[in-house]
Design a binder for these strands. Structure first.
Lengths: 209, 209
DNA sequence: CGGTCCGGTAACTGTCTGGTTACCAAATGG
DNA sequence: CCATTTGGTAACCAGACAGTTACCGGACCG
């Protein structure tokens, strides 16, 4: 990004474009998204999109990076060091499900990226920073729990990390097909609470020594 | 589908179109897929696509139903009644991961469907049959294990079903972003075996009384 | 207070793409 | 063997879409 100092209200337009693009890309995918629609929703003009971001694909990349950055930002707010290993693990599982549920656009973006074999993400300069803080926190909690004898040993932190993400992500990502099949709403607070309890039980049940 | 009897070699063309469409849709999504490309890959003509299926979207629906049907078909081959509850549960978890890994196009299709809020799936006449046999088998295994005292009680079969799907599906669906982030291949036989062991350990660890 | 520069607008274009139409060839069956 | 049906081809079209170009108005600075 050419962060050559800044701009007065231009930054606001840029932000409106990013917000609008997030909605449009999440709703229609990269190929399905319409640049005109993004411009209209941002209450801006197509010209401005090409001025701020060079192309539709670069806009996509910018949206991706913004979404990742926001998630990392919220994850940093998680404080697990003061909690018992079990409570900390619960907090991690819960945060993941709740964040995913609160930001289904993030899920849609990720799915799109994977359809494109992460082609855009691989071009991102921020990739190294993508190691989620959640992973680091998880490793620390795991070690504490094992040292205290409340967690089993032989747990692969990376595998568990993927599994925790999976438990929340899949539920939200596939909420439409799942709710069609099961004929039940999945995103009501009651349903989310039930899912949350289940995810905690699975992870903590597994981790018992 | 107008299965008015059948057709001699027309069925072959129809099948080639379906196969080509599956590849193209999985690779590019619904909006990103090009009808011309499908025609070329099927070694057929665009006209034939519109003769057999009325539109791009109806072709999409046909591909979806075919993919679901194939999965159900393979699932039926799973025999869990002769196995111990633990072994049967392992088999279910393993089958799900392996099937997903062997058919990443299915995952791509599902993701696309969810981006479109399952709009096409809801129009499908086959939806009631979508209750996967895997779910029925899971419920039976769960009951047997609980009766035998080897599984904990209070397990919600639907939640567990979603979780088992999630453990395999998420890993495969996000293999590109995950392998970019972790810098490791995820679909080698070694990696799949490790994932398989982990998934079994999570589910069976959770289910311990 | 006037000029210049920057954020913004609107109309345009070349290309791509889903869908169609006019035409053909090879079976099939009488 | 001829006629009719059916699977297949290729050229075409209208609309849509990403990306551009020509132009404007107000803020900011001298």
């Amino acid at each position: 990004m050419a962060e050559t100092t800044l701009s007065p209200r231009a930054a606001a337009t840029r932000q409106r474009i990013l917000d609008a693009a997030l909605v449009e890309f999440a709703a229609n995918g990269l190929a399905g998204a319409r640049v005109d629609e993004i411009a209209a929703r941002a209450d801006a003009n197509k010209r401005m999109i090409y001025a701020h971001f060079g192309s539709k694909e670069e806009l996509w990349l910018a949206v991706l990076e913004t979404a990742y950055a926001q998630k990392r930002c919220e994850e940093h707010a998680l404080e697990t060091v003061n909690l018992s290993p079990e409570a900390a693990m619960r907090a991690l599982v819960r945060f993941n499900l709740r964040y995913t549920a609160a930001h289904p656009e993030f899920v849609a973006l990720l799915n799109q990226e994977n359809i494109h074999r992460a082609a855009y993400l691989k071009r991102s300069a921020e990739v190294p920073a993508l190691y989620s803080p959640l992973l680091a926190a998880l490793g620390a909690v795991l070690e504490r729990g094992q040292a205290a004898g409340v967690f089993r040993s032989g747990v692969d932190a990376m595998q568990l990390y993927v599994s925790i993400l999976a438990l929340g992500h899949f539920y939200i990502a596939n909420r439409h097909t799942l709710s069609t099949i099961f004929g039940a709403a999945l995103t009501t607070e009651a349903a989310l609470a039930a899912r949350e309890a289940h995810c905690e039980a699975v992870v903590l049940g597994y981790l018992r020594p």
